[in-house]
Write a protein that binds this DNA or RNA. Sequence first.
DNA 1: TAAATATTTAATCATTTGATTAAATTATTT
DNA 2: AAATAATTTAATCAAATGATTAAATATTTA
Lengths: 207, 207
Amino acid sequence: MGKSPAFEKELSTEEKIKAAARIVFAKKGFAAARTRDIADTAGINLALLNYYFRSKQKLFDGIMREKLQEFFGKVAPIMIDTTTTLETKIETFVAHYTDMLIKNPELPLFVMSEIRTHPQHFAQISPIHQILNESSFVAQLKEKRPEVHPLHFLMSMLGLTVFPFIAMPMMKSIASLDDEAYTRMMEERKKLIPLWMHTILDKKPNT
Amino acid sequence: MGKSPAFEKELSTEEKIKAAARIVFAKKGFAAARTRDIADTAGINLALLNYYFRSKQKLFDGIMREKLQEFFGKVAPIMIDTTTTLETKIETFVAHYTDMLIKNPELPLFVMSEIRTHPQHFAQISPIHQILNESSFVAQLKEKRPEVHPLHFLMSMLGLTVFPFIAMPMMKSIASLDDEAYTRMMEERKKLIPLWMHTILDKKPNT
DNA sequence: TAAATATTTAATCATTTGATTAAATTATTT
DNA sequence: AAATAATTTAATCAAATGATTAAATATTTA
C-alpha cells in the first residue's frame, strides 16, 4: 500500500499499530476495518498485530476504551466541581468539547455507534453515571429550574455542542463550507452556546 | 435464526427481504450485517436475496436511499413553505421529527454514519441543498437575526431535536430510564424545543 | 561471546461470507 | 393439459479474512 503516515519513525511497533488502528477503526468501524488495512497503515507485517494484541477484537477494545475515556473522562470533573458556578461549568464544558472535537471530529459518531451496538462497554465507565446522580451541575440545574428534568438541559447542551460534529459532512455540504470555515463556525459556537444555554435556563414558559 | 418477525405472512418475498434488511442493516451497519442474517430474519432461503436484489450492496443501497428520503424528505417542504411563519415551521419540524424518531430511534445514527463514510450518497438528495439556498426558513432566520449565520440555528434546532435519539442509549443509562420514560421526555421536548428556539432567536448579545 | 529472549517475516490455514448454480417446485399462461 | 415463467431449494464455490506458524533476525543478558 502507499506511504505510511508520518508517525512511522520514532514510535515503537506497538504504538505504530495503535496509531494506525485509531485511524482505521474511526474511519471504518470494527467490522469493515481489515487487519491488513491496519498493518498497511502502520507499515508493519500483519502477524505483528496478533503478536502484540492477540486479536483484532482485543485491539479494538483497547482503542475504544481509550476513546470512551477521552470523550467522557473530562466531563465528570467539570460537572462535579462544587467551586464553580453553573455558568462557568457550561462555558468550560463547551470550550473544552469544541476544542477536542475540532481535533477529533469523527469521535462522537465512533463512540455513539459503539454505545448503541454494545451498551455494556459504556456501562463500565463509572464517572459518567455520577453526572446525574451526584454532580454539582445537576444540583445547580435543579435549583434554577426545579420543574424541568435536568436531563433535558444536559442533552440540550450536548446536542448543541456535539451534534454539529456528528452532522459535519451534511452541514458542510448543505452550506458549501470547507473545513476551515466550518471550524470557524464551531469557534463561534463556543460563545453562542453558553449564551443560548443561559437564555434557555432563564426562560420560563408563559402561563 | 429462530422465529421470524410477524411480517412473515401477507408480504411478498421481496418485501420480506426488504423488511428484514431494514432491521439488520439498521442494527449492524453494512459490513457487520451478514446476508445469512437477513435471510434468516426474513425466513427465506439465502439465494433469494441475490435472485431479487443481485447483491448485498444493491440491497443496502435501496434501503439507504429509502432511509435518506425518510429522514430528509419531509424537512424541505416544511422549510420551503412561504405561507407559514418561522414559529410554525419550527413547531412543525420538531413535532414531525420527534414523532418519526420515536418510531425509528436508530435512524439518525444509521444515516449519519452513511453520510460520513459515503458522502456521495448524500449529495444525490437534491431537496436538502434547497434548505439553505432558497428556503423561506432561511430567509426568515436572516430577517430576524441578520448578524448570525442561519446555519447556526439550523444545526441548533437539529441538535436539540435529533441528538437525544443519537445519544438515547447513553442518556437512558445515565438517568436510569426505560423506553417509556424516555419517550415521555421526547414528547416533552416537542413543547420545550420550539420555546427554546424562540428564546435563542430573540436573545441578542449584550453590548 | 554464547545463550536467551524479543521481534519480525513470508507463507499458510481454517473459517466465513457473498454469490452462483442446477434442479425441483409452484404459479401462470397459452 | 401442456408449455412457459417465476420462485425456491440445497449444495457448492471463490475470495477474503483473522489468526497461526516455522524460521530468520535483532536485541539483550549472563
